[in-house]
Design a protein around this nucleic acid. Sequence first.
DNA 1: TCTTAACCGAGACGGTACGTCAAGTCTTCCT
DNA 2: AGGAAGACTTGACGTACCGTCTCGGTTAAGA
Lengths: 233, 233, 233, 233
Amino acid sequence: MAGRDEQSEAGTGEAFGGPAHRPGRPRSAEAGAAILGVATDLLAEKGLSRMSIEEVAARAGVGKATIYRRWPSRGALALDAFLTEFQSQLTLPHTGRFREDLRAAVKSWVRAVATTRAGRMLAGLIAEAQRDPDLAVAWRARVFNPLREQHRALVDQAVRRGDLPAGTDADLVLDLVFGSAYHRLLHGHLPLDERFVTQAVDLVVDGLECGQGRRPRAHGPGKIGGNAGHRAH
Amino acid sequence: MAGRDEQSEAGTGEAFGGPAHRPGRPRSAEAGAAILGVATDLLAEKGLSRMSIEEVAARAGVGKATIYRRWPSRGALALDAFLTEFQSQLTLPHTGRFREDLRAAVKSWVRAVATTRAGRMLAGLIAEAQRDPDLAVAWRARVFNPLREQHRALVDQAVRRGDLPAGTDADLVLDLVFGSAYHRLLHGHLPLDERFVTQAVDLVVDGLECGQGRRPRAHGPGKIGGNAGHRAH
Amino acid sequence: MAGRDEQSEAGTGEAFGGPAHRPGRPRSAEAGAAILGVATDLLAEKGLSRMSIEEVAARAGVGKATIYRRWPSRGALALDAFLTEFQSQLTLPHTGRFREDLRAAVKSWVRAVATTRAGRMLAGLIAEAQRDPDLAVAWRARVFNPLREQHRALVDQAVRRGDLPAGTDADLVLDLVFGSAYHRLLHGHLPLDERFVTQAVDLVVDGLECGQGRRPRAHGPGKIGGNAGHRAH
Amino acid sequence: MAGRDEQSEAGTGEAFGGPAHRPGRPRSAEAGAAILGVATDLLAEKGLSRMSIEEVAARAGVGKATIYRRWPSRGALALDAFLTEFQSQLTLPHTGRFREDLRAAVKSWVRAVATTRAGRMLAGLIAEAQRDPDLAVAWRARVFNPLREQHRALVDQAVRRGDLPAGTDADLVLDLVFGSAYHRLLHGHLPLDERFVTQAVDLVVDGLECGQGRRPRAHGPGKIGGNAGHRAH
DNA sequence: TCTTAACCGAGACGGTACGTCAAGTCTTCCT
DNA sequence: AGGAAGACTTGACGTACCGTCTCGGTTAAGA
């Protein structure tokens, strides 16, 4: 795994019944905060690939072992640093109109990655996850999937309201919209701005709205007949 | 820069007038081929991040300097190895119907990255490009942009034929379709298969076809009139 | 210093009048015994240089601080472990004939270091004492000097009996005999066995017995006359 | 093994027929000299146990790998540094009189270890050899045995001349004399000076000279009858 | 034919960072 | 206050590669 280690203060199990201290000297909160802070700075400064555990330790005034005791790898540390920066920046609005909600959600994400140092961290994390399977797992579990669930709820609500056709493939929609945003982030070939978000969301929502009826979005072989109408234009 | 070095056999300057050899012993073609071959194997075997110049040199029976003389970095070498594998696998059909052409183009790309070792290489290259700006430049110049030009031609032709509304933003379309495919490649959260391609292309093309009149896809306001005829279907 | 610490159970003050506890929880006798036992095992198993306080603590089920509270260094602990093993193995016979007594004393020492795990410990301690001056002091105070006093008594008695010439330098004799034994222990170039002991002792005693009249063994020239009477036996 | 590595310049095999270059860049003589020099300084300054490869590399302006490429361990490096210092300081005189020759040889050794930084190095090396079997082997092969052969020759010549009885056990003699000197070096309980050397040599040579005839120095059980004569003086 | 210039393999060079280990100290709760 | 536990800072370990360099030795073109 690539997240925090066992003695994490983010514990979930100690629900009630007291502080549940482990034996031994507790981990130093200062040390942890200093490490995360320095890691965040270094990440923004030179990118994950140029951030070394050695330098984090030196700048944080901490031994390397103190870092390795808490995070199993550079990537895991970076993931925590990223979350600290990133999570506070996202807003998930719910106006009741799908097009606006999706626009707002994507814009919020884009603003977070394009205008703060989180973007640089994010690209580095995705790169690191290509080489570190543990980090990839942690990434999906702690960042990707939670966000996707929130976004998927947007789609599902729209379907329930009747704004979108039944059978709409939420993953397809989200991969199109967010995938294209990641694309611009990673390749930098074109600007990742609000105009792009508006256009992308509109195009996809248009496709959903008028493509319905004609074609089942999910499985089934029945797309042949549905395509008939297409031929018209 | 991250491409081949000056004394490249892909030279452009020897336009006419003969072989234009430099003085000195010419570069060994065997060495170059051996290096590329070993690099390809290693890339497929363990990924770019685990491939070291040291090991390439050792396996190819070549001195490290011979590699550095030809490629400026690990990424540049990997880029060449990737192109050797990748380029032969793409087909760019032109049936005349945009939806089919785009589907075929994306499927060809997906097949190349999802069913061969090129996919692994590709993910590694994108990761490496996040840390190596020279490689990022070379990547765009030698892989990304050429392919995009070909695909953009598909869109432009469709617009010219009237299959798509004038003012269609080709980059937006391509970022949506290919961006979502890259997304699944890099995060691995869902399968990157032909069904996904079909659905993604259909959704985007639907959006293009019916979203048109309502909203200008491109900048200026003057497009509204031009789009009028489209509104018919 | 490198011996036991202040609150030693070898205390002298609790002579009468009760347990004379210091404030606070008294030291656990089990802990001390467990530490010494584990240390002895580890010493025999892998040598002093490969014995770590960390492992002693873990195997003894004891906190590291509990060890450091009682012994100031790894060497001091090893010294105690060595003494526990070693001291019971020595016998100091007194037959009244110097040659036999010295032979027996050296053989007893040789047997202890050559046939038990004490030998390995001893070599390790001498090595450690080269780097740790505190241990060197403790070593001399608790092992080397006490033993030397016993052996010196042998020589002194022989001189008093007239078996050896007056003015015999006991330290010289003992350094020759025991020094050569340590030599074989530390360098391992030749066997350290009873035959060697016999030959060494005989050669040195021969030298003492017949070298006398010709040369003063100890300081100053004034001893010549004094030694005259010795020649009688 | 703990001596120099394979590509040693001390080669013996290239007797004639040229320089016998290995492929690749030759090792830098400056680097080697700098390393040895710094190692010698550090050894004298703080002892082998406090000398770290890290610091040698830093002070010599050399990468750690350059040291590890040439010496397999800290001990092996220290051994070479010791030899550089030590070997030039020994003189092996041959006057023809055994007592004087042995005295001179031991005094030369004592002077080298007691008055120069070689002594500190020597004690550290012997300590290190207790924990590193490879170093122990190298120590015996490169220092101990060569010196012993020279000294044994002294004894053997004396026997051939008739100065010493046939059957004299040279190893026994040398272990007594040098063993006692090492003893004082390692334990520091008494001064290691020229007076000590004179006394020790004289005592041992006396023992050899007058113990003869009465007792075979080698093997044989026949020492009982031989002891009869003892009572005579 | 002889230079010359750039290539070739090999491998050493000074470095950086790795991840691990143990040192000796400190901090917590419990007995 | 002692004890078990275990986190703390420190510093060194030996390894892996980096990108550069220096060898002896090829291989053509051009003088």
